[in-house]
Computed example of a mutant assay.
Amino acid sequence: MSRTSNRADGDIVRDFLSVADLLEEPQLAQLYAYLTREGEATVQDVIDDLELAQGTAYSYVNRLVDAGVVGVTHDEQPRRYAAREIDLTVTAAAGDREYTITPALIHAVGRRETNADIDTYIDRHGVAGLTTALTYAVARERGEVTHRLMAEDLDISPLAAEMILQALRPVVHEHYETGADVSHDTQEGVNE
């Protein structure tokens, strides 16, 4: 991937490849999610908060800057960095499905390193499957679906659906307004 192309023209291929890097490397996704959450941070903040070695932190931040998904917000020392908004829609080869890559999805992928349920789900269903699960997780938190409905729709076990919905819950609450007045337990009891 070229690290020198100009973003001024909105190079879509470069944007896609940059996002693909985030989706393939959970550590980069975790750093991007951190910067999205914090608004902006220094490399020292990254070292302290994510418990990364100094060389690793600098390397990751520089890779994200080179990829164009993180920018320098304050050029004086210490430099401050912020995540750039990502909202990229990809159409499947058959043209029958579209997947939108957002900071919430990147955050979910970043949790793969620390959440075995997300890791297992990605191994079994890929990032596209995680994208679909995230959509269901948002709907669940809004009281619109249950884990049983998700399981039926996606042809997975109700236990697998419940596990991924629970694993994605913190991501949903951080990135989406759910507005649900009903807890899961109450809602699921109503819909069963």
Rank of each mutant, 00 (worst) to 15 (best):
A167P: 04
E174Y: 14
G179D: 12
T186F: 07
D181S: 01
E174G: 12
A167Q: 01
E177V: 02
E152P: 05
D185H: 13
D155G: 05
D153K: 11
Q187D: 13
T146Q: 08
G179E: 10
S183V: 09
A161K: 04
P170V: 05
H184N: 02
R169K: 15
S183R: 10
Q187W: 13
H184P: 15
M163V: 13
A161N: 04
G179F: 11
M163N: 14
V172W: 04
D185L: 07
M150Y: 06
D185R: 12
M163S: 13
R148D: 10
S183G: 11
S183C: 11
Q166D: 09
Q166E: 10
A180R: 09
T178V: 12
D153V: 03
A160D: 06
H173M: 06
H175E: 14
L149N: 10
A180V: 09
S157L: 01
H184Y: 11
T178A: 02
V172H: 07
R169H: 14
A160K: 08
Y176A: 07
E174H: 13
H147K: 12
H184G: 01
Q166I: 05
D153G: 01
L154S: 14
R148H: 13
E162V: 00
L165T: 01
V145T: 14
I164S: 05
M163G: 07
L165F: 03
H175C: 13
Q166N: 10
Q187S: 07
H173R: 14
V172E: 03
T146S: 06
L154E: 15
V171E: 08
Y176T: 00
D155Q: 10
P158R: 01
Q166L: 04
P170Y: 08
I164V: 15
P170R: 03
Y176Q: 01
E152S: 13
H175L: 11
T186W: 02
T178I: 12
L168V: 08
L154P: 05
E152F: 09
E174L: 10
V171G: 04
P170S: 08
L149Q: 14
E162D: 03
V145S: 07
T186I: 09
S157W: 07
V171M: 08
P158H: 03
I156G: 01
H147M: 11
V172Q: 05
M163L: 13
A160V: 04
L149T: 14
D155M: 05
H147L: 09
G179T: 08
A151D: 06
E162T: 00
H175W: 14
V145L: 06
D181E: 06
A160W: 05
M163H: 14
E162R: 12
L165I: 01
D155E: 14
L149V: 14
R148F: 08
H173Y: 13
A161L: 10
A151L: 09
V171T: 15
L168M: 07
H147A: 12
Y176E: 11
H184S: 03
T178P: 04
E177I: 00
I164H: 05
D185C: 04
E152W: 12
V171F: 11
V182P: 00
I156S: 02
G179K: 08
H175I: 05
P158V: 00
V145N: 06
I156R: 03
L159T: 15
R169A: 14
A180W: 06
V171Y: 06
D155C: 04
